[in-house]
Write a protein that binds this DNA or RNA. Sequence first.
DNA 1: CAGATGTTGATTGGATCCAATTTTCAGGTA
DNA 2: TACCTGAAAATTGGATCCAATCAACATCTG
Lengths: 243, 243
Amino acid sequence: MNPQSALAPASSDLADLIARTPARHRTATGFVEATLRAAILSGRLSGGTPLRQEDLAAAFGVSRMPVREALRQLEAQALIDFVPHKGAVVTEISAADAADTYAIRLALEPAALALSIPNLTADDLARAADLIADMDGEPDPSRMGELNRRFHMSLYGRAGHPKLLALAESQLAAFDRYLRFHLAAKGPEHLSQEDHRAMLAAAAEGDIGRATDVLRRHIATAADTIARFFAERLSAENPFAAR
Amino acid sequence: MNPQSALAPASSDLADLIARTPARHRTATGFVEATLRAAILSGRLSGGTPLRQEDLAAAFGVSRMPVREALRQLEAQALIDFVPHKGAVVTEISAADAADTYAIRLALEPAALALSIPNLTADDLARAADLIADMDGEPDPSRMGELNRRFHMSLYGRAGHPKLLALAESQLAAFDRYLRFHLAAKGPEHLSQEDHRAMLAAAAEGDIGRATDVLRRHIATAADTIARFFAERLSAENPFAAR
DNA sequence: CAGATGTTGATTGGATCCAATTTTCAGGTA
DNA sequence: TACCTGAAAATTGGATCCAATCAACATCTG
């Protein structure tokens, strides 16, 4: 998998990705940043892919400048690394990185949930229930990631600490990079919907202890699934996954 | 406090700040980003200050381009907001924002400490002890912030999750924006050195429960101090602090 | 034939220039 | 006098251009 062959499909993917992205972003920089971010998180741009500024500029139909600014923002989000004279490369996913992400989720999300539960409204709980229902029949992994994120955030949303919530949400988004593997390992219908239901029930009763226990177990189980998946599949099939 | 009068001293401060900053950053973008970041975290550039690209470019002796890239990175770190045709403005500090930062610290740091303690070496503990000693006689608030951050990170450093550690460190750095107020309220010699010593002792014994308890209390106390400071001083003396 | 070396191509970092939009202030009018 | 209107100044977003640096490849030599 040399850079050339890796980039060619990525570029064509980008072209149609751009065509289907809603034109809600006013500035070119914001548009490029959001599109690239979505492409990386969804796995469309896989780890190690070099992103050359000129190619991106051509694909987006803009100059290199907004591309550069967007890349700087993605760098600040740890989604890419700047390698001098090589281009910005998408950071690799790995078992260790997944464990890292889960450790952060395990620290942040129970805290957010505990702060939020006392302030949850009936409306919040209804929306969360709706999202569980939506997830039940969702076959598309990237839609599933979005629904899963919205479900979790709907339960954390009343925590009252915007930065804490923003951090939790960005980690949930980072989790999307692994969701595809998770779904591949367990099948879409098994995305711990029992956990989601149990968490919602505990939250509805205002039982903070039980809700956070379920959440912690939920995250730990997911971490375990991914760790096993990496150990069993990727290391055998793809030697690059290990590094 | 109109934008003009606020900017003038900030610009001159920047000029001498630049003169005293070590020239370790190779690229102009990295240099600008690090310098501005330090200026914001240390309070030299206070909340609400507009940062006009042209002024910054002139102050740094570079063109507007590296300034813009640096500002994008700071935006991704939530230190500034882009306001069209007004310039990038430094985000405001407030009691609510401080509480937010402390909530995040309370979630991340005990988790990092618990993961790290089993792997701490005698060397790590010795360095932590040295840092406590250094803090004892340090009058400069910004040096103090650096030492405090290094002390905490020396105890978390063996947690083995780079992203978790990076997140914890960035939150500790964000705390620097409030450290000045903390020191003003309690005096430099009272920066909870007893807590630091107790935490180090528990860590040295491998007592995770006690160490994390001390840490939680340490952070909660600091949060309390800041909250009271904002309530008692700033709201009375400076109506802008409330918003 | 293997290894060192020089040259060329590719890629990024930075500077300058242009366009679009908003804010501000001066002037006129009810 | 207060308010509305319009023009100019200021500021950012984006494009194009130039310089510096590094990687790869062909070539030359021992």
